[in-house]
Write a protein that binds this DNA or RNA. Structure first.
Length: 290
DNA sequence: AATCCGTGGTT
DNA sequence: TAACCAAGGAT
């Protein structure tokens, strides 16, 4: 197999063994695609599936969500993590309702103007919801390209323009094939060409893989910045506070919050951060979701 | 441009 | 078990 055979080989493989995920169903609404992409930003597929179903049942359209306080979005976000995304999704729903007649935009630049929508999400919606032809590149696709094309074990830090150009160079001309390839390369990166212990024996493009061809050399190059230890971090403290606000339907008092964490300085910093981010607001001598 | 932002499963 | 990792985005 040659490099130029990779797109079709992945499309065929996906048709055979791609998983049936909710957002891959026929006639899945564009709003559902947008919500799923927000939820999938740094949160694994398995944890998103149940929350997405609840969300779309409660808020079937952007206008339904926009009509509620943003705190309800934060509450429904539950334990998906990075709750700012819930706030941003609510804001995007308001923008869609007020500026786009309640219809999820189709153009990439218009999508990019929505709060919380970046380069990946904008293209994902244009391609997966509307079937347009654009390269979509995420962490999975970057890893597949790093290995199969560049012969490197890891992709290194993201470089937006170069990553997009790599994907564009592989993208089939025809719309439907382009969409299918975009989905397939992400799926391969997620279930076969994984970050740790890739399953090369099962890989449909193994015979074209530059990395395998080079003997699967170790990665040497710029490394990603390591994620700070979670235990004891501000993130953990913010999470503890927000968990209380989500569970409560009355204001949470300062006394109740002070019982959540021993380090008063860190606790105050975390609470101030939540207030600054708009994830918490003062009300009646306590704190509530916005 | 480097850092910050949650949470829980996997190795 | 500690470290790694996850369909990123904003500042």
């Amino acid at each position: 197999m040659k490099t130029s055979d990779i797109p079709n080989a992945l499309i065929d493989w996906f048709a055979r063994s791609g998983r049936a995920l909710p957002w891959r169903e026929d006639d899945f609404p564009a709003w559902g695609t947008l919500v799923s992409e927000f939820m999938l930003q740094q949160t694994p597929v398995a944890r998103v599936i149940p929350r997405l179903a609840e969300w779309l049942e409660r808020w079937p359209t952007p206008a339904d969500l926009a009509a509620e306080p943003s705190g309800e979005a934060v509450r429904a976000w539950a334990n998906l993590g990075y709750p700012r995304r819930a706030l941003w999704l609510h804001r995007a729903a308001v923008q869609i309702t007020e500026e786009h007649g309640g219809v999820v935009p189709r153009d990439v630049p218009t999508l990019l103007a929505l709060t919380g929508v970046g380069d990946y999400t904008a293209r994902a919606v244009a391609v997966f919801a509307y079937g347009d032809r654009h390269p979509v590149i995420d962490t999975n696709g970057r890893r597949v390209i790093a290995r199969a094309i560049h012969g490197q074990a890891e992709p290194g830090p993201p470089r937006a323009a170069a990553d997009l150009a790599d994907m564009a160079a592989l993208l089939p001309e025809e719309r439907e094939a382009a969409r299918d390839f975009n989905v397939a390369i992400m799926e391969l990166g997620q279930v076969v060409c994984t970050a740790r212990s890739p399953r090369c024996e099962e890989c449909p493009i193994r015979s074209a893989c530059a990395w395998v061809g080079a003997g699967s050399p170790e990665y040497f190059g710029p490394t990603k910045t390591v994620q700070a230890t979670y235990a004891g971090s501000d993130r953990q403290v913010r999470g503890l506070i927000l968990r209380e606000l989500r569970a409560a339907h009355l204001p949470v008092t300062g006394v109740e919050i002070s019982g959540l964490w021993a380090d008063r300085v860190q606790l105050d910093r975390a609470l101030a951060g939540l207030l600054a981010d708009g994830l918490a607001v003062e009300s009646q001598g306590g704190y509530v979701l916005p």
